[in-house]
């Protein structure tokens, strides 16, 4: 999919550049764009390093495990009937807390582990179970406490308080998560697994 979008952007640039007589600008963009990509990476690098370092401390001092424990009643609510002491519930808790802290690296292995555990509970392995659907939706609309990449880009372009959008981000992501889970639950009930 990305292949097509990426190619389409550049091929359309050629066509529109020709139609609009902006071929010089397109040529310029090849060089200025790739140079500015490195600017973006360099400005992201500091934030990325610092934040990953802080989050490593959070992980090894048990902060993410503590968040996982606080979340476990919610997990029980979202996954009705799932054994809360089991390996699946544990992996789900760790995945959610890592996502909340913005630990993408740590979240993915826990997420894959959770999928594996849910797959073991799945009577028809080629077909997604209700738990799996809920879990994937939980990940595609996950809530991140501190959106670091976005804050970094905002400060790069001179926002005085790059985090002033945070309450709006929280409200939006919590609401979209609730909507996603509600839709998944309704459809889970309606389309009972055969």
């Amino acid at each position: 999919m990305l292949d097509y979008i990426w190619a389409a952007m550049m091929l359309l640039s050629f066509i529109f550049g020709m139609m609009n007589g902006r071929m010089d600008e397109v040529t310029g963009a090849v060089f200025s764009g790739s140079a500015s990509a490195i600017d973006v990476c360099i400005s992201l690098l500091g934030t990325m390093c610092f934040w990953s370092g802080i989050m490593k401390i959070a992980e090894s001092s048990g902060v993410s495990r503590a968040i996982g424990r606080v979340l476990s009643p919610l997990i029980k609510l979202i996954f009705p009937g799932l054994d809360t002491k089991g390996a699946a519930a544990n992996a789900i808790c760790m995945n959610v807390s890592a996502n909340m802290l913005g630990l993408g690296n740590a979240a993915t292995p826990f997420g894959l582990e959770a999928m594996k555990q849910l797959s073991a509970l799945n009577p028809s392995p080629l077909k997604a179970s209700n738990y799996m659907i809920t879990f994937v939706v939980l990940n595609t609309s996950s809530v991140q406490i501190i959106p670091t990449t976005i804050a970094m880009l905002r400060s790069k372009y001179g926002a005085a308080n790059p985090m002033d959008i945070m309450p709006a981000v929280w409200i939006t992501s919590i609401l979209s998560l609730v909507i996603g889970l509600a839709v998944a639950m309704v459809l889970n009930k309606r389309r009972v697994q055969s």
Binding site: M10, L12, S13, F16
Partner: peptide, 9 residues
């Protein structure tokens, strides 16, 4: 780079 070209055109 692709986005920048897309914009410039």
């Amino acid at each position: 780079t692709a986005v920048e070209m897309f914009k410039a055109s």
